[in-house]
Design a binder for these strands. Structure first.
Lengths: 343, 343
DNA sequence: ATTCCTGTTGCAAACGTTTGCAATATGATT
DNA sequence: AATCATATTGCAAACGTTTGCAACAGGAAT
């Protein structure tokens, strides 16, 4: 039944003023009716709503945003460290992003996604905030920008960060207790009989550094030799060779490997197999994250689980509270050791 | 050196008018200077730019957008089908999203991400477009919304869709030639000696249907029995059991499996192993996508590669052309068979 | 009949930018 | 000296909503 004349009618109504003319009221009344304000007569409201539906009219969000000084949009920014290419396709961040999208939608917010390279754009955070397009910002990962974020946090309240919590920091952060996670991993490895441990992954990013430190804590406490850091990139292609090289050099001397992420752990598994080392008999292996891949490796990975959904909920909850004027503490989530078959 | 008085100075300059007052010119001139228009005196421009830098001023994008009737934001929408939960964390879509973010940023656009559930919100596409917040929209996956998208495409030009191309369709689509991909897979399986083939995955979504059809083409042409469709969900947890059930029932009778995605293929591998069936000796297996996981399974997956980066480039390129008023054809990308060790 | 509510509406000024047009200054040309 | 072109700038009207305030109607209370 929608003929061409219907099309024409539709394109006629672009503004709230158009609709007001049709309804025979003033723009103000239409605005109030559509916003669901109580001070408008029920009949008038229904008439306006019917017309709006009929013509598929929606108020312009830009204009609304400008006038109300809020946009209904939350910015989500992913700072890419030196390892530029990989991070965004990193499964963990992507999964978190998915949950964030859900959670924000549930609360009536839209999500504006931005990837930035802080090195080439030192102004990345202020630019986003100052754009006037977003009501608040969620930073996914501190990368190597801890200081920058701290500075901004001093003057801007509507920000929450996913990352590692450091004593006395000024920005509100949500994240797993990485250090505790590291301890859980090391304890498990050691309980299985491993004495000489290695940590596979970059210890630069704060989260990873904390995981490493946690493992180191345990080794020290137990009087074992220090955990050997085996640096790698995050992207599977580069990490793969790097792990191979590390293992070729230290392979036999290592009894337990704690990998910074499940992705890296999976690569370790492949390389260990190539070297003829049996997991967990010759070498024990533990990952971090508990991504789907952890269940699909052979044998399935023992790993330290991060509750990504809870993380997303926490981020959004805290941010909304801050938008509402509350002052919020950081939220540190407990990691959970998931025992499968590699340690 | 930035003391508290600097802070104050900063917060003083919120609008272009504030800056104009400081610079001793009119707001119009400031606007022109900051926009890099040629009609402003070099000295004036430099003075204004210096002041802007000093006070960390950035023009409000909402106001600018309202006035210019464009926002510099591209909407990216992911319609979730019945299998609600999984799709967004689906590796393929997420990877595509990452590349899209890059590509849009490169062209100076921001990305507004929205997930929608068409079932509960039939108006999903018009709502997004009508919001006035975005200059154009990229739809990731047709899901079961082909008709809805077609309707919208008739009246709205600034849209490009990732998905399957169907003869005579009216919306501009970018996607892999799924049917050809299906043919490549089936041919490889058959060349390896498999006669009785199965397709693992949901044949509902158009992309998957086309992959299945391609395999069916080859089976028919070769005079083999029809390819057996083994329906599963996309999410690993549910698919896992479903695959196990299918294989328990048909296992021995199947010589070649074509999985709709690498994720499903990896699950097949696990289940086949559990049944004591050797890959590729007893059963040959081919996936689709060539995600990182394809290289990490044991043995590594033979699969049909989609060039995700090229897809993202294509989507953005076509969309920008359409924004510029061009009429564009759809873009069908060639799949590529990647031979590893499972077939 | 006057006053005073209450409920509903209209008016018009914002929100911060951009941009067509007019105004001015400056120098070049006649 | 008058005229004209050019280069810069200012003015003010948009863009489409929202919202404080005033206006109005109708009825209730005096």
């Amino acid at each position: 039944m929608p003929g061409p004349e219907d099309k024409t009618a539709r394109s006629q109504v672009r503004t709230i003023t158009d609709l007001a003319r049709l309804a025979g009221v003033s723009p103000g009344t239409v605005s109030r009716a559509l916003a669901g304000k109580s001070l408008v007569n029920t009949q008038t409201r229904e008439k306006i709503e019917a017309l709006a539906r009929e013509h598929g009219f929606r108020p312009n969000q830009m204009a609304s945003g400008l006038r109300r000084q809020k946009t209904g949009v939350i910015g989500v920014v992913i700072p890419l460290g030196h390892d530029t290419r990989q991070q965004i396709s990193d499964s963990f961040f992507m999964t978190l992003l998915g949950f964030l999208a859900d959670e924000l939608t549930t609360h009536g917010y839209d999500l504006m996604l931005r990837r930035v390279v802080p090195e080439s754009d030192p102004d990345w955070l202020d630019r986003f905030i100052g754009s006037g397009m977003i009501d608040g910002v969620i930073v996914i990962g501190q990368s190597d920008q801890f200081e920058r974020i701290e500075e901004v946090a001093d003057g801007y309240r509507s920000m929450v960060v996913w990352g590692n919590h450091t004593e006395g920091q000024r920005h509100c952060v949500v994240g797993t207790d990485n250090r505790l996670g590291g301890r859980l991993a090391a304890e498990r490895l050691i309980a299985g009989g491993a004495r000489r441990l290695a940590f596979v992954g970059d210890t630069g990013p704060m989260e990873f550094a904390a995981r490493f430190a946690g493992a180191q804590d345990v080794a020290a406490r137990m009087g074992l030799p220090p955990v050997l850091p085996l640096a790698t990139h995050l992207s599977p292609d580069r990490a793969s060779e790097e792990i191979a090289a590390h293992l070729a050099r230290h392979g036999r001397a290592i009894e337990g490997i704690f990998a910074a992420t499940d992705t890296l752990a999976a690569l370790c598994l492949t390389q260990l197999r190539a070297l003829g080392l049996a997991v967990p008999d010759d070498v024990k292996l533990i990952g971090f994250d508990d991504l789907p891949i952890a269940r699909q490796t052979i044998p399935p990975l023992t790993t330290v689980r991060q509750d990504i959904a809870a993380g997303a909920r926490g981020l959004v909850d805290l941010l909304l509270r801050r938008l509402g004027g509350e002052t919020t503490e950081s939220l540190v989530l407990p990691p959970e050791l998931v025992v499968r078959e590699t340690a």
